[in-house]
Simulated assay, not measured.
Amino acid sequence: MARTPSRIAFTFAVAVAAGAGPCVPTAAAGKAGKVSCPLVFGHGGYPTGPDATAKDQVRQANNPSAVDDMKSWGADGVEADVQLTRDGTKAVMWHNVTTNGLDGAKAKITELWWAKGPSRLGARRITRGPYKGERVHTLRAWLAHVESTGLIALLEIKPQTKGVLASTAHGAQAWKDISGPIRERQGRQRILVYSTDPWIQGELARRHPTLLKGSAARWADSAAWDEPAPRWTANASRWESVLAQSPPSVMTNYTRDYRRWLNGKCT
């Protein structure tokens, strides 16, 4: 599928001196009766139901192997999850509240140190799913790898970080470890940020106003993700209706299938 700047407008400000960062994407007008092709953000998928943690196959793009897979499947960007270790000392890429899916004794991420102690998070490895054996990565290391692939980094600051980010004792350090790696790279790397927690979202708007996700990466799927994953065809009707609205970008759990489905439907 041809993807040229005239067909998809996605511009980023790079005026480092002004502290500017990437803006949200803007759709171009469709031609010959077809809509413009959206940018595709890959999402890992998390199972539904009360036994979700037991079924979780750790498919999130929080490690380099998962990022590389998203790239090979045709993603333009990846959505990944930022957590904080004990006292906000390290921003890390992980989706669960606990170490569920990692080796070692189960513990909350916010109770573990990154680099010290027998239960340190930096030494943990994934125990199941397609990325078994991969380790947890810091935000800074993850961003560096995503930059090397040319993908857009979409960061969700998880709600569980609020307790540390809002604390008098550790909030300043915690925000430094999240915002520092972002500010270091935003002049040369395409980064967007958001949170489902209203307070964190408000802080992101204050600290990183030019990087907010906004309406970018609209959710495309309708099928509730589970393990084993439902067939992509369960999303077909929703995909059609979303594409008809010519969104500049979408997010999906079915990156490879969505890219194949999109072929020939847009310009």
Rank of each mutant, 00 (worst) to 15 (best):
A17T: 05
I200F: 14
S65D: 11
S237Y: 03
G171K: 01
D257C: 06
G104V: 04
W94C: 04
S215Y: 05
E79G: 13
H170W: 12
H95F: 06
A244P: 04
R206A: 11
R124D: 07
A107Q: 11
W232A: 11
N100W: 13
I157Q: 09
E240C: 13
G150H: 01
G88L: 02
A223K: 00
L139K: 05
R59N: 13
T138V: 15
P118E: 00
Q189L: 14
Q201E: 02
D56Y: 03
S148W: 13
P47T: 09
D87F: 01
G45Q: 08
R238C: 13
P209D: 14
N253G: 06
A123S: 15
D51L: 14
P22L: 07
G74S: 03
A52C: 15
E184L: 01
E147A: 15
K116P: 07
H95R: 12
V82Q: 01
W219M: 12
Y194Q: 14
W73A: 06
G129W: 09
Q186S: 07
L192V: 10
E203H: 08
A18R: 10
A28M: 13
W142K: 03
M251E: 03
S222R: 14
A17V: 11
D69F: 12
A2F: 03
K71M: 12
G264K: 15
R183N: 13
Y258E: 02
P47L: 06
L112R: 11
S6E: 15
S241D: 12
A17L: 12
D76F: 09
K265M: 03
K34M: 11
A229E: 02
S36K: 15
G45Y: 00
G163T: 09
P209C: 11
A236F: 04
E184I: 08
Y194T: 15
E156M: 09
A172L: 01
Y131D: 03
G44L: 06
A220F: 02
V193D: 11
G150K: 02
A216G: 02
G45P: 15
I178S: 00
D68T: 12
P5S: 04
A28G: 09
A27Y: 08
A229C: 02
G187A: 09
L212H: 08
A27F: 10
S222I: 08
V136I: 10
A153I: 14
H145Y: 11
R256N: 11
I191H: 13
A20N: 13
H208A: 06
R135G: 09
L143E: 03
T127D: 11
A224H: 15
Q173I: 15
F12D: 14
C37E: 07
V35H: 05
W219V: 15
T255N: 05
Y131A: 11
V82S: 00
I152M: 10
A144S: 12
A220G: 02
P118D: 04
A75Y: 05
